[in-house]
Amino acid sequence: MEKKIRDYGQYTATAFFEDEEFVRHILNRDADAIAYWEQLIQQYPDKRLFMEEARTWILLLNKQPAYMPATDRLQLWDKIKNEIAGYEERRRRYQPLKLIFKWSAAAAAVLFSILILREWTSHGEKTYATTFADHERVILPDESAVTLNGNSSIHFLRSWKSDKPREIWLNGEAYFEVKHVAIKNRLQQSDSFQVHVSDLALTVLGTKFNVRNRRGLTEISLLEGSLRIEKNGPEAFVKILKPGEAFVYDSSRQLLAPMERKPQANKAWTTNELDLDGYSLREILEVLEDNYGYEITLEAPELAGKRLSGTVPAASAEDILFVIRKVFNLKIKRNANHLIISQN
């Protein structure tokens, strides 16, 4: 016991209470240890009271009478025994079945690995595409949602790592509801969400916006949050959009210009409506071609620039055709997917 050269001068009751050797000597009552601590009291007489107190605590805690439940141990064991017996019985009965199950599980595992391997070789790229007149709502790995208009597609790498921006590629038209993943006040590049469309990169954090990319024109309509349009290479530019703004980018002239139509109108399609404000008849017909897959010939070119206002239901192409036929008094000749429109 000579090895311990501790400074007991600073010891109080709690220090003794914590001291492993001290605890051990009280609980084990080893003769050598008792002698050591007795001698220590002689050496530090002013510690006697602390040691006594610590010792009392330890004994109070240690000598607690064990709880004696008024329960029946044998009865509980019988219950356990019965449950075990039932389990063994079931096991005997289902053993053969289990074997079959085991084999089919193994077969399933092999099949699963083949599927995984196929996924792997496609570089984990995921594509969603809609046909004409179809809408699809896609939930992305980060729980952001993308609603695809007809004849549109997105693709992205399945494995969105948390240290990289989320990137997605768009053709056609889609409405984005992007989940905000950044921790407050700690914005990092990796928190952003990027849409590649035409030759633009749209960067957002958490927002709602609509992107329509048809015929070389890309319309970007921001409903909430903020959005950065960036073009690299020749004629590079950066434009920050505020909520309520809509811009159109002409990729042939590399020109970005504000739009007359409002963002709310541009996303009306997501609720199966078409907001006619700001559309000319030609543009409405283009929507029919782009989203519903018609080929349209307008035999009354003087009508092309005519405008309407109001919202029409657009659950199907028929709805839209019905409205323009009535309003402009048109005749529509239908030849499979080819519509020939003329003045009545």
């Binding site: 009392t56 004994l59 109070l60 000598k63 607690q64 009478p65 709880y67």
Partner: peptide, 10 residues
């Protein structure tokens, strides 16, 4: 639950 009697130990 209850305190032990420590007369002997003490």
């Amino acid at each position: 639950d209850e305190w032990p009697e420590l007369e002997q130990e003490l």
